[in-house]
Structure formats: C-alpha cells, structure tokens
C-alpha cells in the first residue's frame, strides 16, 4: 500500500474529481498528497485479514420511513441560489452543437 502518486495519476484523479490539473503546481500538490499517503501507510502494519469493514460506527440499520410524500420541493426557493436560472431551467454552456 506504500503508494506514491505520480503526475499521470494526479492528472487522472483531477479528471475524476472535476478539479483543474495545473502542471506548474503539480510538484507541490504531489508532495502534499504523498505526505498524506505516507501517513496513511501506517495502516499496512495492522493485520486485518479476518476483520470485516465497519461502515456505521454503531452498526445499526438506518431507520426507515413509510414511502409517502411528506413534503414538496419549493423549486422557486431552490432556484434562488442557481448562478443561471430562467423559465424553470438551469442554464449551462451548449452541450450539443
């Protein structure tokens, strides 16, 4: 697991995360990320072969609710925070030419 990221992986991760890849800052970013991975590499020392993963700290089922409509979305209120919203539509750059 002692993995160190290289520039190609950083570029790939930037695409997956929808974050800009900035070649002039890549060394600095890689150093910061690899510092975190170095910290995380301590986990390699732990024997976990027969240990199931823990997803919920209390290991409880989440509570369920009846499948009923209990509220409606106030689309006008939600649209107030949209950067570009007109006539009930969110505007984005043209996708299909």
């Amino acid at each position: 697991m002692s993995t160190h990221l290289d520039e190609k992986t950083l570029r790939d991760m930037s695409v997956l995360a929808a974050l800009p890849y900035e070649p002039n800052q890549s060394m600095e970013t890689l150093a910061a990320l690899n510092e975190v991975l170095e910290l995380v590499s301590a986990l390699e020392a732990v024997e976990v072969d027969n240990v199931p993963p823990l997803a919920h700290p209390l290991e409880r089922f989440q509570s369920l609710t009846p499948d009923q409509v209990t509220e409606t979305v106030d689309s006008e209120a939600l649209s107030q925070n949209a950067p570009n919203f007109e006539d009930g539509l969110y505007f984005v750059p043209r996708v299909i030419e």
Binding site: M1, T3, L43, V48, V51, P53, A55, P57
Partner: peptide, 15 residues
C-alpha cells in the same frame, strides 16, 4: 481495497 477497505477494517479494530 488497499486504502478504503483497509481503513474501514482498522476502524472496526479501533471501535
């Protein structure tokens, strides 16, 4: 598995 899976297993040991 190497990162998230392992961390969740270690989390169980901590609990």
């Amino acid at each position: 598995d190497a990162f998230y899976g392992r961390a969740q297993r270690v989390r169980r040991l901590i609990k």
